[in-house]
Design a protein around this nucleic acid. Sequence first.
RNA 1: CUCUCAGCCC
Length: 235
Amino acid sequence: TLSWNCMISGFGQMGNLELARDFFERMPRKNLVSWNSMIAGYEKNGDLEQAIKLFCHMQLKGEKPDRHTLSSLLSVCTELVDMHLGRQIHQRVIKIFIPDVPLNNSLVTMYARCGAIIEARVIFDDMKLQKDVVSWNAMIGGYASHGFAAEALELFGAMKRLKVRPTYITFISVLNACAHAGLVEQGRMHFKSMVTEFGIEPRVEHFSSLVDLVGRHGQVEEAMDLINSMPFEPD
RNA sequence: CUCUCAGCCC
């Protein structure tokens, strides 16, 4: 069963769902990991309906979803922006589990993506000291993508005060927030601090945010200089 | 053996 499961998750990650499903169907004895691997494979490759179908199917077979199952399902809800299903999964998380950080992070992401930014924040705050950098990124990204630049930047400040080290993903959201709000000066500052203070290599996403920001605010020459200074081809 | 955060277009 162990090696069958490896096959399923391996082919699932490669995107070969037909083959993964083939192994899944043929294996003599499935366990919870088999179901989880197959569901995760569908979710990762965007076959969200199949993921939900299999989730229902496993329960009919008497399998009890665990944190891996529910994590995949929350990702499905996030991608579908389906808060109705998301709430149902949330209820099952509450019923089944002792607090789990990745699962709470998924809940934050799901609610944020569905526009329920307050709900996301409640989960986030309830995590207290358990919050990790992913939790911060999820919440900051949620604010940023809904145009709440002030909240995103305030949270970013709080994060740094608590000595949580930002990642390149944090800065993608921070720069997007600045771009959204037209905060040219702050955007430049954060970009610089990303490199000098945190030693993070700027990626194409960072450059495009900053180019967008300064370019839209009349600093066309600076935008061109930025493009020319990029270590990769412009988009 | 499963694994959470940005990354379609606008």
